[in-house]
Design a protein around this nucleic acid. Sequence first.
DNA 1: CAGAATTGACAATCATTATTGTCAGATAAC
DNA 2: GTTATCTGACAATAATGATTGTCAATTCTG
Lengths: 220, 220
Amino acid sequence: MAHVNTLFMASSRKARLYGGMDAEERRTERRLKLIDAAIEVYGEVGYRSATVKAICEAAELTERYFYESFANSEALLIAAYNHVVGHLHEEMTAAAAAAGDDAEARLHAALTLYFTRLKEHPKPARVFLLEISGISPAVDAVKLDAGRVFSDILVPPVLDAKHGDRGAAATLLSTGMVGAVISIALRWVSKQYPQPVEDVVAIAASFCRVALAAADRRQD
Amino acid sequence: MAHVNTLFMASSRKARLYGGMDAEERRTERRLKLIDAAIEVYGEVGYRSATVKAICEAAELTERYFYESFANSEALLIAAYNHVVGHLHEEMTAAAAAAGDDAEARLHAALTLYFTRLKEHPKPARVFLLEISGISPAVDAVKLDAGRVFSDILVPPVLDAKHGDRGAAATLLSTGMVGAVISIALRWVSKQYPQPVEDVVAIAASFCRVALAAADRRQD
DNA sequence: CAGAATTGACAATCATTATTGTCAGATAAC
DNA sequence: GTTATCTGACAATAATGATTGTCAATTCTG
C-alpha cells in the first residue's frame, strides 16, 4: 500500500499503465500469482518447508513483491486458505441449493461435490486439510471459522428460539461432524483416493446424520 | 548410548553409583524428567515455541543431557506424546474391561475415563490434542498409530474373515469416529470445559455408535 | 585423602531464513 | 529521445535457536 503513488491517487487520472494494466491491477495480479504459487509449493513440500524465496520463484516474482502484498508468510497462508476454501464453500452451497429441499439430498450433494473436488485438486486439498493445522492462533481462528461455515452448509443450523443462538450441545455436534468428515477426507487424500467418491460420501454422510437427527429433534 | 562405559558393561559389575543410582538408572531418571518438563513447557507455550533450553531449565538439567537422551526436539515430542497417550490408553482399556461385555457400556466407560482425564490434566491434554499436529511425517505417523489404538479401544475391530484384515470402509469409519471424538475433545479443552463430562461423553458416543452399528452389521 | 567419573554452567559454532536495501536495466509517457 | 516509473536480481542484515565443545566444581571409590 505504501507503494501506491498517493500524489495522484486523489485525481481521477489512472496510474500509469504497464502491460495494459494500471498500478492496482498489476498489484492484484501479482497477489493472485503469489497465492497460486503458494498453493503449488505448499502442495509439494508443505507449508513448513516452503520458503518465501521458493514461493516467489514459483510465482516468477521477487521477494520485493511478496512483502508488497503480504506482511509475512503466515498472511499468505491465510490468504491461500481462504481462497481455496471460500471457493469450495461457494460451490458446495450451490450444489446443496440445486438438490432441492430435502435435507438428506442436500447433504449428499454437498458432500459429493466436496470429495469430488478434493480428488480433482490434490494440492489445494493438501493446503486446507493438512497445512493449516497448528501454525498459530491466528491461523487456528481462520480454520475454526471455516469449520463453522462448512458445518452450516452440510447441516443448516437450527437456532435456539430462546437465545437466538445455537446451544452448546449443537456446537459440539457440529464440531464432531466436521472433525469426522475432515479426518475421513484427510486419510482418503493422503492414501491417494483408494475408494470411489460415492463410498466415501456414504461414510461421511453417516456421521453427518448424527448431527442432522439431533437438529431435527431440536426443531420439534 | 555413546556415553555408557562400554569397557565395563560386559562385566557383571554395576557402574559407579551416584545418588544411590547406577549409571543407567540416572539416565532414565533424567530422561523422565525431560519428558515431564516437556509436557509442562508444551502446555505453557506450545511445542513450536518451546526451546530446548527452556525445557532443560524446567527439568533442571543442561542441554548436554538433552542430547544424551534424545536426538533432537522432535524425538522428545514423540516420547512425550507416547508417554501421555500410552498411559491414557492403558487406563481406557482397563475401564472398558471393567464395564463388562456390552459394547455400549464399554464404550461409555472408556469415553468417560477419557474426558475425565482430559479435564484433570489440561497440559498433557494440550500436548496430545493440539501440539501433535502437522510437525513432520514422523510425528504424523506416531499420531496415526495412536489413532488406531484409540479406535480399537472404543470399538473393537471386526476382522474380515476372508482377508484377516479390516475392510477399507471400516478404516474410514474408525478414522471418522476418532476424528469426531478428538475434535470434540479439542474444542471442549480449548474452551475450558464448558459442559459437564457426561454431556460431552453422550455426544461423542453418538458418533461412535455410527462405527459400532456398522461393525455389528459386518459381524452378521 | 587422591584420583577418576560425573555433572553443571556457559561459550562458540553453525545453519537457516525472513526481511530490508541497493542498483542497473526495462518500460511507458510525453 | 528523454525522463520518471517500475521491475528483477541479488547482496546485506538480523534474529533465532540447535548442537557441540570446554572447563571447573562436585561426588564417589578405594
